[in-house]
Design a protein around this nucleic acid. Structure first.
Lengths: 123, 123
DNA sequence: TAGACATGCTTGCATATTGCAAGCATTTTA
DNA sequence: TAAAATGCTTGCAATATGCAAGCATGTCTA
């Protein structure tokens, strides 16, 4: 898919939702094995493409590129200069994206309680 | 896959995890578009195969069967008589499964706050 | 107690997504 | 200004999803 038409692709409309359930709707956006790990990394202060690929789960680059586009489309992240005066872009959470913190915390707590050998990185 | 060998299939071991991160580990189990909707339905008191397929999101039956097996393998649900004296089996959340309630609540709140037109079914 | 219907799946198949490796234009560093 | 790093894209094989049909077992009705 070329960049321009990707940019013009509409964010998921109400009619594209499986149901009006807020849980279902949330899963339509972040319901896969990778998206919330990218959001976790954003909370950990990572912002650049390379940073996300460096996480221990090793997300494939094509999947990462697609997920970042989806997060942009749904307004969970924005792009901004990666650092002062740099032409490289980084990604940052919007308020909508930051609002997923309780979801990540709940998952963190669940994992720590019920799955042996897990260890938290997110505080 | 025959029923017996499916029963004998090991739950995901530490080595099968992508990383020791509790969030990643949680997503290894429930990180897809459907599993948490099944868990939501279980919280809503639904317990039988037919009940899950009747939800508005309309999960395909083969996907539902696979997800229920995964939830059984990971100990998030158990099977029990669907009703008094019935030979039909239903599914119920274990404590481990019930511990996902904060995750669902966080997703519900996020959806209600950030996605227009969503409406809660889970209380 | 026989037939009809409901339940709880399984199967087959087309399509979509994922994972892996390689490639490449642009930016930054030495 | 050449070399390395960055931020992706592309191609392809493997896996997962979605849809429709099929079917064994259980339950209900006459």
């Amino acid at each position: 898919m070329p960049a321009r038409s990707r940019r013009l692709t509409q964010a998921k409309t109400d009619s594209a939702r499986r149901s009006p359930c807020p849980v279902s709707c949330c899963l339509d956006i972040v319901g896969d094995r990778w998206t919330l790990l990218v959001v976790r990394d954003l909370f950990l202060g990572r912002s650049r493409f390379k940073d996300f690929t460096a996480s221990p789960e090793a997300i494939p680059t094509n999947v990462l590129a697609e997920r970042l586009q989806r997060l942009l489309q749904h307004g969970l992240v924005i792009q901004a200069a990666a650092s002062e005066g740099s032409k490289h872009l980084g990604y940052q959470l919007t308020d909508k994206g930051k609002a997923l913190l309780p979801v990540l915390k709940a998952m963190k707590n669940w994992g720590l309680t019920w799955e042996r050998g897990t260890k938290a990185a997110l505080h």
